[in-house]
């Protein structure tokens, strides 16, 4: 199970959170100006990297707030949590390998 650090509530079990996919996807300001291909890219195309991934999580069974997590998609190790917008508490809350580590990394493939 992942141990995820909510910037507001601290480290909590994965089951308290819901996953929101790739972070840093900005909604186009003027959708009408986009071509179909550009709109498809915004809606459906994803980086899907093998390695470090910046992703959104929602603390759905806690404070219900969104934040970002930087996690490796192979080792599942969490490098840190971060704020999606400036200004919240603990902006760039560094989870560090201790609190953000994933019990699952012990397992074999």
């Amino acid at each position: 199970m992942l141990l995820i650090t909510c910037p507001w509530c601290g480290p909590r079990a994965e089951t308290e959170f819901s996953y929101g996919g790739e972070a840093d996807i900005a909604r186009p300001l003027d959708p009408d100006a986009l071509s179909d291909a550009e709109w498809a890219d915004y809606l459906f195309y994803r980086g899907n990297p093998r390695g470090p991934h910046r992703e959104k999580w929602n603390h759905v069974h806690g404070c219900r707030r969104w934040f970002g997590v930087e996690r490796d998609t192979v080792s599942y190790r969490i490098a840190r949590s971060f704020m999606l917008s400036a200004g919240g508490p603990g902006a760039d809350a560094d989870a560090g390998p201790e609190s953000g580590g994933d019990a699952n990394t012990e397992q074999e493939d």
């Binding site: 992942l2 819901s18 790739e22 991934h53 998609t73 192979v74 599942y76 699952n104």
Partner: peptide
């Protein structure tokens, strides 16, 4: 639910 290449 999360993206993963870890086969676990």
């Amino acid at each position: 639910a999360y993206n993963g290449y870890g086969q676990r």
